[in-house]
């Protein structure tokens, strides 16, 4: 009797967990639809988006540029040491550029963006909720989704592809610095082999599409976790952690799916 009760409890709690997750997904979709598909008020919306672009985009620029430079330099160094064994060190530019624009720029930018901007978004919105600023906005007749959430979502979508492209170009020049200036690869072949191998539509545009999708996923997760956070200090810290963990997992999983779709049959 006792055992069968426990089994029933287990099944019931599994069902509850599943329903909770489903409800969470539903709420997250409602937040997204509600925040994105509202009639914009040109005057206020625009300046709010600019403010958030500064917060999530401009402030992330330094970490993106520095990481891009070093990743490009490491790729140049590693690529050179491997390729020089086969006497084809002039292909190092191709290796650096293709790994950056197809894979590393969108993925590493997205991981850094989740840590740098996603966590900040969650903490900010979570604290607004804990200090009842969101409730106060509603009291005075301002829709918090429109005023607080929508500009942050848009800023995230706009910043991610820009940051990813900056990461890629800084990385390519970092690779050029190491392989041309330090290791002595002929600069003409570095650039011309690269230009021969990289296709604008297949490689660069697909990389940008990846970045847009990742930006969408990260900001959506961050904003939703902020809105759903338990309004205590512990609750906010847990939501912030969840934002980074969920975003990173989703980025890597989505990256596999997108890579299979874009480059799978090549």
């Amino acid at each position: 009797m006792n055992i069968s009760n426990k089994i029933m409890d287990g099944i019931a709690s599994m069902g509850r967990g599943l329903l909770d997750n489903l409800a969470g997904l539903g709420r997250a979709s409602m937040v997204l639809v509600h925040a994105l598909f509202v009639w914009p008020q040109p005057k206020t919306s625009f300046s709010l988006v600019v403010k958030q672009l500064y917060n999530v985009g401009v402030k992330s620029l330094l970490i993106i540029v520095v990481s891009g430079l070093f990743i490009g330099m490491v790729l140049g160094l590693q690529g050179y040491t491997i390729l020089v064994d086969f006497g084809s060190e002039q292909s190092v530019g191709q290796m650096v550029a293709l790994s950056l624009v197809r894979e590393l720029a969108p993925v590493v930018t997205a991981l850094l963006f989740a840590g740098r901007a996603g966590s900040a978004l969650t903490a900010e919105i979570g604290l607004m909720k804990a200090t009842e600023q969101l409730a106060s906005l509603e009291m005075i007749g301002v829709d918090p989704l429109r005023r607080i959430v929508a500009p942050r979502l848009w800023a995230g979508f706009i910043s991610m592809p820009i940051l990813s492209m900056i990461f890629a170009i800084v990385g390519v020049y970092g690779g050029a610095l190491v392989s041309i200036e330090w290791l002595g690869v002929f600069s003409g072949s570095y650039w011309s082999v690269m230009q021969g191998a990289v296709d604008f539509y297949d490689d660069i545009l697909n990389g940008v599409i990846k970045a847009v999708v990742f930006g969408f996923a990260i900001t959506w997760i961050a904003v939703y976790q902020g809105l759903e956070s338990v309004p205590t200090s512990e609750g906010i810290s847990q939501s912030t952690t969840r934002t980074v963990v969920y975003s990173s997992l989703i980025i890597l999983a989505l990256d596999f799916v997108l890579t299979a779709l874009m480059f799978g049959d090549v």
Partner: peptide, 17 residues
């Protein structure tokens, strides 16, 4: 920041591809 994005896109298109 936005101009840097456009410049990066142009540099990728012309220099890299």
């Amino acid at each position: 920041f936005l101009i840097a994005g456009v410049v990066a896109a142009l540099a990728l298109a012309i220099n890299v591809s």
